[in-house]
Structure formats: structure tokens, C-alpha cells
């Protein structure tokens, strides 16, 4: 495959001079598109993910991501772009989750996640998830000529992103971010304090459904860089890290976006200059950031004590 060859060539070209390295990397059009797509996806996933972490909806995000896999592989089998498959399946699954009673991380009274995933519901979701994963696997097997198919769809790939795909990703991201900006404050209220928000006339059910749609779209986007199984690298890890670092909403949301951008750019660069996959790098950098943030908050009181002593 041409792109893979180009990537291998680039891997040989690491010079330790950032400017020449970036020049070399961006001399490949597919790398430029990977950065464009990665930037769009990182911003979107961090913003939506910030609410996912706050609302304790990682289970819903995981479900949507897994549903994206048969969508993408089915689309490829039918000869359409994998991106379309991700969007179609993730957003449809979000609608289904919203319709299921008590699904999608609805909480008990008072906004704390009380008995959010009852046995029956998670068993049902698990059953459907497994079946859909198996369907995805079948679609990949039926499409015999699909290079590195399963790996790319499950664990991410940055190769072969076209201009029109970048445009689609950007358009979806703009719509999702605009809706998120419009509903942000009542959504935050409903996320931390559902009972009070409802008593104050906030339409918590409607917001919860709307948010699942946004989550479906964001998951579909994130899957296109990190693959279905590693979406948390962009959807959960940056937001979780940011919330560890600051309890101020504005600060932690900004931090989440910065971290997501940093791990995406670093991950793409590392993947470009080495033979290992992008999903591994993005996830590892995001994990590293989380561990550092945790260590920093643990160390802070100790350091303070050491300074005052």
C-alpha cells in the first residue's frame, strides 16, 4: 500500500530537529489531512467527553463506540466510506439508548449515580454489543480485500483520510459544538443536580436525549482516529485528567481540549515516524497525562507541607 510505504519512509526520517521533522511529516498530504482530522476530533471529543465524565456516562460511550465497528465495516463492505458507517450506527444507537428506559446513565434522585446500570439493562446491552461486534467481524471477513481491516477499525488508523472526510468531520463537529454550547448550562445543571434542575423547570429528559445524540456523533468521530476500542483515549482520558487538575468548569474544559490536542498531535507524530499504530500512541500519551495529573495532585499536599516545614 502506497500510504503505508510513505509512512515507513517517514519513520526512517526522524532527525531530532522539530522543524525538519514537521516539514518532512507535512510533505505527505495524508499526514496533513490526519492532523486536520485529528485536531477537529480532539476538540470535539474533549468537549463532549467533559460532560461524559461529569455525567458518569462512560458506559454509554463505550456501547456507542462498539456499535460503530459493525457500522464502519458494513459501510466498507457496501463500498461506502467507513466514516458514514460510524456516524449512521453510532447516532442510531444513541437514539435507541435514549429510548430504552433508564438507559444512558440516568441517575437516581439527587444527581448522584444511584443504581445507574441495573443488572437487566447492562445484560441486555452486553448481549447486543457482543452480537454487533460479531456482525462487524463477519463484514470484515466478507470483504476479503480490506487491508488491515479489523486492526484499523478497532485500534485506529490515520492513513488515507481524504479532504472530503475532513470536511465532513469538521461540519459535524461544528454542529455538535454549537448545540453543546447552546444547551451547556442547563446540561451542566442537570448533570450535577438532576432533581433540583427538574424542579426548576429544566427539561432533563430532553437534555439527556439530546446529549446522547451529541455523544453518538462525537464517538463516531473519535473512532475514526482511535478505532472503536480506544475511543476513551480522546473521549474520556483528557476530560478525566482535566477534572482531576481543576474543579473549575471553565478551566477544566479548556484543559481537556488542550490535553486532547496535545496527545493527538504527539500521537500522530510518533506514529508517523515509527512503525507502531497511532491508537497505541494516542492512548499511551493520554494515559501518561492522567497518571501525571494524579501524581501531581497526590504530591501537592506533601510538597506544601515540605515547603512550610
Amino acid at each position: 500500500m502506497l500510504l503505508a510505504d510513505a509512512a515507513t519512509q517517514a519513520a526512517a526520517g526522524w532527525s531530532w530537529n522539530p522543524l525538519t521533522d514537521i516539514d518532512l511529516m507535512w510533505s505527505y498530504p495524508f499526514m496533513v489531512n490526519a492532523f486536520r482530522a485529528g485536531t477537529v476530533i480532539a476538540v470535539l471529543a474533549a468537549a463532549v467527553g467533559w460532560f461524559v465524565v461529569l455525567r458518569r456516562q462512560t458506559f454509554a460511550a463505550h456501547t456507542l463506540a462498539l456499535v460503530g465497528f459493525p457500522g464502519a465495516s458494513g459501510a466498507v463492505l457496501l463500498g461506502i466510506s467507513a466514516g458514514i458507517g460510524y456516524f449512521a450506527f453510532c447516532v442510531t444507537a444513541a437514539v435507541v439508548l435514549a429510548l430504552l428506559p433508564r438507559a444512558g446513565g440516568l441517575r437516581g434522585p439527587g444527581g448522584s449515580p444511584g443504581g445507574s446500570h441495573e443488572g437487566e439493562e447492562s445484560a441486555l446491552t452486553g448481549t447486543v454489543q457482543a452480537f454487533l461486534l460479531a456482525c462487524g467481524f463477519l463484514f470484515v471477513a466478507l470483504y476479503k480485500g480490506f487491508l488491515g481491516g479489523v486492526n484499523a477499525l478497532l485500534f485506529g488508523s490515520f492513513l488515507g483520510i481524504t479532504d472530503s472526510q475532513v470536511t465532513l468531520l469538521a461540519a459535524v463537529a461544528v454542529v455538535v459544538l454549537a448545540v453543546l454550547a447552546a444547551i451547556g448550562r442547563p446540561l451542566l445543571f442537570a448533570s450535577v443536580d438532576e432533581a433540583v434542575a427538574r424542579a426548576r423547570g429544566v427539561r432533563t429528559k430532553l437534555l439527556s436525549t439530546a446529549f446522547l445524540m451529541l455523544l453518538g456523533a462525537a464517538t463516531a468521530e473519535a473512532s475514526q482516529i482511535t478505532g472503536s476500542l480506544l475511543v476513551f483515549a480522546l473521549l474520556v482520558m483528557p476530560a478525566a485528567t482535566a477534572q482531576v487538575l481543576s474543579p473549575r468548569p471553565a478551566v477544566s474544559l479548556l484543559l481537556a481540549v488542550v490535553i486532547a490536542l496535545a496527545v493527538t498531535w504527539l500521537g500522530l507524530t510518533a506514529a508517523c515516524f515509527s512503525v507502531y499504530p497511532v491508537g497505541f500512541y494516542v492512548t499511551t500519551f493520554a494515559f501518561g497525562a492522567y497518571v501525571l495529573a494524579k501524581l501531581a495532585t497526590q504530591a501537592r499536599p506533601i510538597l506544601r507541607r515540605a515547603v512550610t516545614a
Binding site: 444527581g111 448522584s112 451547556g184 448550562r185 450535577v192 473549575r248
Partner: peptide, 29 residues
């Protein structure tokens, strides 16, 4: 209610502020 989740990383000030304008549309910041 029961208490807030111990891992909820939102300041008390923000919770009080939501009482003021949390039902209004817009960016939460």
C-alpha cells in the same frame, strides 16, 4: 437527596451559581 458523588469535581460555588442561572440556555461559563 443523598450526598454528591465523592469524585464529583465541581466546586460548591459552581453548584450555588447553577441555582442562579442553571436553567438558562448558553455556555456554562
Amino acid at each position: 437527596r443523598r450526598s454528591f458523588d465523592a469524585n464529583l469535581r465541581i466546586r460548591g460555588t459552581d453548584i450555588v451559581g447553577l441555582g442562579l442561572d442553571g436553567d438558562r440556555w448558553g455556555v456554562p461559563f
